[in-house]
């Protein structure tokens, strides 16, 4: 029956319906999960988060026990070490800088990556979630991710003096 035809004061569940407002619910037309999919955060999620937190802390505390943070000689502006390595998370960028013009490798690529990441949810508007059903997005992302990881590993471990190629099992130049 349509809303207009609804008979006024009506008793439902011991409550009186005073009026019905046409329109969409306040949450919009998004679906809210059925209540049997829901569990209490405390304790179910909290316990898991606590375990994850302890696990991560143990890893850090153990690593710190066995591996000391490096400290080289005091900074000397007149002497560039050879090879000169950026921190490992910029190793891919440094590798690119050795291959391309700095305007491309140092500016264009990082800017494009940042803009691409920010724009991603506004470009990929399809409502599909599962990674099997959105091949284009998943493939693109994976290609970039794998490339970036490869470049990072090359820059980190496979580069020696004068940025020449070395085999990490013969010469080790990585710095953490």
């Amino acid at each position: 029956m349509s809303r207009r035809e609804r008979p006024s004061p009506q008793i439902v569940d011991g409550k009186r319906v005073l009026g019905i407002v046409p329109g969409t619910p306040a949450v919009g037309d998004r679906k809210v999960p059925a209540s049997d999919d829901l569990v209490m955060t405390s304790p179910h999620l909290l316990v898991r988060h606590a375990v994850a937190a302890i696990f991560v802390l143990l890893i850090v505390l153990a690593l710190a026990l066995f591996f000391d943070a490096p400290l080289k000689d005091i900074a000397d502006p007149t002497n560039t070490p050879n090879p000169e390595k950026a921190p490992w998370y910029f190793a891919a960028l440094q590798e690119l800088l050795a291959l391309f013009h700095p305007q491309v490798a140092g500016v264009l690529v990082p800017t494009a990556i940042l803009i691409g990441l920010v724009a991603l949810p506004y470009i990929d508007r399809s409502p599909r979630m599962g990674s099997g059903t959105r091949k284009v997005a998943v493939t693109t992302f994976t290609v970039f991710l794998v490339l970036w990881i490869i470049l990072t590993i090359i820059g980190f471990a496979f580069r020696g003096p004068n940025w020449d190629w070395v085999w990490p099992w013969e010469e080790w130049h990585g710095e953490l």
């Binding site: 991560v56 890893i59 850090v60 505390l61 690593l63 710190a64 026990l65 591996f67 000391d68 943070a69 490992w88 998370y89 990441l117 991603l120 949810p121 990929d124 508007r125 399809s126 409502p127 599909r128 979630m129 599962g130 990674s131 959105r134 998943v138 992302f141 991710l145 953490l176």
Partner: peptide
Amino acid sequence: NVHRWSAHLMVLTVAAHMARVFYRGAYKS
């Protein structure tokens, strides 16, 4: 050492978090 390792690992976990969110499609509307 703790400070250094936490820093390295944080870069890793933040990046991995982003990848996991991507593959789950959780960035969508």
